[in-house]
Amino acid sequence: MSNTFDYTAAPALIRVEDLHKSFGSLKVLSGITETIHKGEVVSLIGPSGSGKSTFLRCLNLLEVPTSGHIWFNGEDIADKSVNIDKHRQKMGMVFQHFNIFPHMSVIENITLAPVMLGKMSKDEAIAKAEALLERVGLSDKRDNKPSRLSGGQKQRLAIIRALAMEPEVMLFDEPTSALDPEMVGEVLEVIKDLARNKMTCVIVTHEMGFAREVCNRVLFMDGGTICEQGEPHKLFDHPEHPRTKDFLSKVL
C-alpha cells in the first residue's frame, strides 16, 4: 500500500471552509477548514463526541451546516439554492448500520438509484450490479432478500450500492463498528480494494491498524476541530499535540 501518494499535488475534490455546526446550543463543529484531494484516502479518528461523524455527514449535507462553505465540483453545496441531489449522486456514502433497503432484493438495492435517476438503462444497471457483486464475492446472493445476509455481507452490499452510482468520492461512517469481529476483515478488504484503485475515500473509523495501513492521511479530531493531521506513520508514531498523544495512548 502506498502511503507515499503526494496528495497535495492532486487537485482538490472537496474544499471545506470554516465549517460550523450546532445542534441547538450544542456546538459540534467549530470552524473546520480542510481539503480532500482527488485519489486521497483520508481517515478521521478521534474520541466519541469529537464531531467526526457530523463532519463527514456535513460533506454530503445529511447534516446541514450552521455556517461555512463546502466546495464540490465548483459549487458551494452548503448554499441552500444548490440542488444537492445532483451532487449526492457523485458522493457515495456507507453507514454504520448498513441501511440496506429490506423490501428489495440484493440486485434491486443496487440498481434502484442508477435506473431511477436516469444514469443508465435497466440492462446496463443490472450488468453493472452483477459485475460489482462479483467483485465483492456476493454473486450467489443476487436475488436474495437482504434479511438473509450477514452483517458483513450487508455492508459489502451497501458499498457496491453506492459504487453503482459511479461516485467521485466515498464517505464511510464507521463502516465496521456494527459488525461482529470476524466480519470486519471482509469489509475492510473491500475498502482497501477501492483505495488501491484510487477511489477518493473519507473514512470515520476506530480501526487504527486499518487507518495506518490504507490511508494517505489521518485527521485527528477533538472538540469539533481538527487537532492534528498528517501521514499515518507521522501521526501514529510521532504525535505532537497532547490530546492526540492522550487519545492514541488509550486506543493503541
Binding site: N60, L62, D85, K86, R88, Q89, M91, G92, M93, F95, H97, N99, I100, F101, L112, A113, M116, L117, A158, R161, A162, M165, L171
Partner: peptide
Amino acid sequence: DRGQTEAARSLGLSSSQTMIRI
C-alpha cells in the same frame, strides 16, 4: 428507520422519490 431515508438521499434520490420508493 431514519437510516433508510438517509441512505436513499445519499444516493441522490429526491425527498419525494425516497418517500414513494423507500
